[in-house]
Design a protein around this nucleic acid. Structure first.
Length: 445
RNA sequence: GUCCCGGUGGCGCAAUUGGAUAGCGCGUCGGCCUCCGAAGCCGAAGGUUAGUGGUUCGAAUCCACUCCGGGAUACCA
């Protein structure tokens, strides 16, 4: 705040000087002065805006007794944190030792969650991998005349951007900007990619606009840079989840809750049958797939760019347009093959023809045919919700087919075979579509 | 101040990027299991797509302005 006040008074006196100065005789000079005044005014507005934002935050803090006491007791905590970061970057032995101590357990925790989510990587190169390249990045940018010193920091000034892209701070520490540039350089030199996608919250959009612009001027123009931005996850109060505040629900807890709820549904369903289908072990396995599928689906099924309010019930819903519905459709198809004693692989090789007599059959067949078209649409703008929409459409059409068209008890053998073929196509479409979303299916649930 | 993103039945969200009667889930109301799995299906109620003007054969979608909400806005990671 005090720094902002300082900047404010600096700007105010500069503006006053500019305005008080006698207007120059030369019209070109006059234009320049007018422009400077305009810029100074804009800067003033910005500073005032930032101060207003800060005041709101301070008010909030003041309203909370505990927070206020805590902040008063550790007034300098922010500066100390930054100093530690700078020390780490400068190779301080103690900081490095601490980092090396903390890292393994953190990674272990993260890897366990990735394993559970069935997420894997071809390469994982963390920030530290690029550490040695950072000063070289800044030197290179300076040499090329892209970066220059301003207020003690190394900055890249970009056309049409309100603020510079800072690649090294006053205190010598580097920033994400620097690491991101080093990453681009590394990838371009080692992997020569056609496209680099950044799947990051939309609030970082200015950062990526600046990063891409800088990278292009730096010489990496022959690649598609894409910020695949997504909306912010909001709490019940409509405010963003703060992943660092510690108050948010952890992902692990969410996964556990999902699996637990799924298990309850699976068990209740199976118990309601005359003859339960599943062993305890199978129930657990199904619950894991259904529960985690529900979370992934909820996340992928809405428009990528819009914010959404986090809700357990919505995340873990298993009725309607949900993963469970799709998994359920898949299981129903499997069940038909089971009960009919039909091997889908043999059926596919039999050379049997399909004949679509009923409207529900035609609608389903048509939906299945549109699979590749749906995938194309997803890729245009990296929008997984178009795939979930499509899969939901297929599953709905299958449900209508299922209600109206007996398969195993079809009128004729030819019709039975035809419908079995359609069932097989449906199951494969749902299975493949869900697998593209990282969601597993089960034969029985 | 400037820039970016939003505003769609009670709630949560879609709408194949300008196409036909704006769809779906939850919720509400009413039907459907001696018949391949009811986590399902069928039907009903609920909309001036924030507002005003414009472009177009056609607008939730594009343009302008207004109102409301969110985000970003030089040294956080």
């Amino acid at each position: 705040m005090s720094e902002l006040r300082l900047r404010l008074s600096e700007q105010e006196s500069r503006l006053a000087q500019l305005e008080l100065a006698p207007s120059p005789a030369d019209p070109a000079e006059g234009k320049k002065t007018a422009k400077r005044i305009q810029e100074a005014r804009a800067d003033l507005d910005r500073i005032r805006g930032e101060m207003a934002n800060l005041e709101v935050k301070i008010d909030r803090l003041d309203a909370d007794d505990d927070l206020r006491k805590c902040a008063a007791a550790h007034a300098e905590v922010g500066a100390r944190v930054l100093a530690e970061t700078a020390a780490l970057h400068a190779g301080d032995a103690e900081n490095r030792a601490l980092w090396q101590r903390f890292l393994p357990p953190c990674l272990a925790e993260i890897e366990e969650t990735y394993r559970r989510l069935d997420v894997s990587f071809d390469h994982t190169l963390g920030e530290s991998f690029y550490e040695e390249a950072l000063s070289g990045v800044v030197d290179d940018l300076k040499q090329q005349g892209l970066a220059r010193e301003s207020h003690g920091a190394q900055c890249v000034f970009l056309e049409g951007q309100p603020a510079p892209f800072i690649v090294q701070k006053q205190d010598g520490a580097f920033l994400y900007a620097t690491t991101d540039l080093a990453t681009i350089k590394y990838r371009m030199e080692h992997w020569r990619p056609d496209a680099i996608l950044y799947v990051v919250d939309h609030r970082q959009s200015l950062h990526f606009a600046q990063l891409f612009a800088t990278a292009r001027r730096w010489g990496y123009g022959d690649v598609e840079f894409q910020h695949v931005s997504f909306g912010t996850v909001l709490g019940d109060d409509g405010k963003p989840f703060k992943t660092r505040s510690g108050s948010s629900i952890g992902l692990t807890g969410l996964l556990d809750e999902a699996v637990e709820r799924a298990l309850a549904v699976v068990a209740a369903n199976d118990d309601a049958r005359p003859e339960p289908l599943l062993t305890t072990e199978q129930r657990r396995n199904v619950a894991e797939r259904v529960g985690i599928g529900a979370i992934k689906y909820a996340d992928l099924a809405h428009n990528r760019t819009s914010d959404y309010k986090f809700s357990y019930d919505k995340m873990l819903a298993m009725q309607g347009n949900t993963a469970a519905y799709m998994q359920y459709s898949y299981a129903r198809v499997s069940s038909i093959f089971d009960q009919g004693g039909v091997d889908p692989a043999e059926l596919r090789l039999s050379g049997a023809k399909m004949a679509l007599g009923h409207g529900a059959e035609r609608a389903l067949a048509l939906a299945v045919l549109q699979f590749s078209e749906a995938l194309d649409r997803v890729l245009v703008d990296y929008r997984p919700n178009l795939l979930t929409d499509y899969l939901y459409d297929v599953a709905s059409k299958y449900a209508a087919f299922f209600e109206n068209c007996p398969v195993l008890r079809a009128d004729t053998e030819a019709q039975r075979t035809s419908r079995l073929l359609l069932c097989d196509l449906t199951a494969r479409t749902l299975g493949l579509g869900l697998s593209l979303l990282g969601i597993a299916v089960v034969d029985r649930m």
